[in-house]
């Protein structure tokens, strides 16, 4: 794994948390999230995504339920009110960071 891959992985940690909180306004199961994110051009390792879902659930940001109505049981996750508050805070940070990067890039150009 090269340096860019390493940096991407580190940057994705916080980013993925925000993405998941945005995406799970509608209940989804783990593999469905992987597929949706892949369609959006974001490849996610399952061993990273699932533990993240569980951590967010432990924090109360997500709720989950097992659905066995189909041929096989699946665990569906959905964002909670607490998760929405967290999402708002993370979005603020993300916007602030974006502005900082923008400013720094402009300074570099000039």
């Amino acid at each position: 794994m090269n340096e860019v891959d390493n940096a991407e992985k580190e940057m994705n940690r916080g980013f993925l948390q925000l993405v998941v909180l945005l995406l799970l306004e509608k209940a989804m199961y783990g593999y469905m999230i992987v597929r949706v994110l892949e369609e959006q051009g974001l490849t996610v390792d399952e061993n990273t995504l699932y533990p993240l879902l569980r951590r967010l659930e432990e924090k109360g940001a997500l709720s989950s339920r097992w659905d066995a109505t189909e041929a096989k049981a699946r665990k569906y996750y959905e964002v909670t009110d607490q998760g929405r508050v967290l999402r708002g805070s993370l979005l603020e940070i993300w916007v602030k960071q974006g502005k900082t990067i923008q400013t720094l890039r402009q300074e570099v150009r000039s």
Binding site: G30, Y31, M32, E46, Y50, R54, W66, A73, K75
Partner: peptide, 17 residues
């Protein structure tokens, strides 16, 4: 048990895909 169920379920989903 819940974690293992979810790992198993994700493997099945991957295979189904």
């Amino acid at each position: 048990v819940d974690v293992l169920r979810e790992i198993g379920s994700s493997v099945e989903d991957r295979a189904a895909g």
